[in-house]
Design a protein around this nucleic acid. Structure first.
Length: 255
DNA sequence: GCTCATGTTCCCCT
DNA sequence: CAGGGGAACATGAG
């Protein structure tokens, strides 16, 4: 589930329930913790108050007046607020507050939790990240693409180029921009690059209010199935592995 | 039993 | 060094 729009939804959830809230305890299993352990996590966060979390790409940076909690949601992660004291089978971490609990659930455990002393070590957790796909301005976006020789899909999926796009948002973006996923990024005209930027922003703009990726009538979820047709030309959509991921596209519309 | 899944990292090859 | 391909990670769903 988690691409930029999903993580933006998690940011809102975190802000709403944990922002300004005092941590009374932390439960966690060992699996999701990348640079700490359950005992330390509880000891370091208990008694601290979360501020407003920040999202960069698919990463959520949760500051307190002290330590910083960094979350990544992998393929199946999500944040769920409950007031019941009951855990879930896939809970990997539970932040406990006086008025409820914020659960990090992640069935496949590809996500991760880091605890930092401050924000200076952030890049050690996230690795190199390009500018956030939603906030990046046109000029900066074009500058990031300059000199890239890879395929359009591979370049857009690279978090070090632009942070936040995933398999579904990239397919939707390329479909809107009418650019073939295997097209060399270096072969795009400046007009095509501008169209690509607009398409990316449009996909994100449409997905962000939902706080999740699935978007009807686009190449996100509903159309990713055998026999699906292009909403523009009504020919059958093609699919295959491109840049290592299952990719859906319209061979007629996208060049 | 089989295949596939919205992410990232690592290794090997060109 | 840049880029592509594949495997691995863990746990389901169909």
């Amino acid at each position: 589930m988690p691409e930029l729009p999903d993580v933006e939804g998690f940011r809102r959830t975190f802000q709403r329930y944990a922002g300004g809230n005092l941590v009374t305890g932390v439960w966690s299993d060992r699996d999701e913790l990348r640079n700490t352990n359950p005992t330390r996590l509880d000891r370091e966060l208990r008694g601290h108050v979360f501020g407003a979390p920040r999202r960069h790409g698919k990463w959520l940076v949760c500051t307190t007046e002290g330590p910083v909690l960094v979350l990544h949601f992998g393929m199946t992660g999500e944040l769920v607020w409950t007031t019941a004291r009951k855990g879930h089978r896939h809970d990997r971490m539970i932040l406990q507050f006086r008025d409820g609990n914020l659960h990090l659930r992640d069935m496949r455990k590809f996500g991760g939790v880091w605890l930092l002393r401050d924000e200076r070590g952030l890049e050690r957790a996230t690795g190199p990240l390009g500018p956030d796909a939603w906030r990046v301005k046109r000029d900066a976006f074009l500058a990031r693409l300059a000199g890239r020789r890879g395929g359009a899909k591979a370049v857009l999926m690279d978090q070090a180029v632009i942070a936040g796009l995933g398999n579904l948002t990239v397919d939707a973006t390329l479909w809107r921009a009418r650019i073939h996923p295997r097209r060399g990024m270096g072969t795009l005209s400046s007009r095509e690059q501008a169209v690509l930027f607009d398409a990316m922003k449009a996909v994100l703009r449409d997905s962000l209010p939902l706080g999740r990726v699935p978007l009807r009538g686009d190449l996100l979820t509903t159309l990713r199935q055998e026999g699906a047709r292009c909403p523009r030309c009504h020919r059958k959509l093609q699919h295959g592995t491109i840049a290592g991921r299952t990719t859906w596209f319209c061979a007629h519309c996208q060049h």
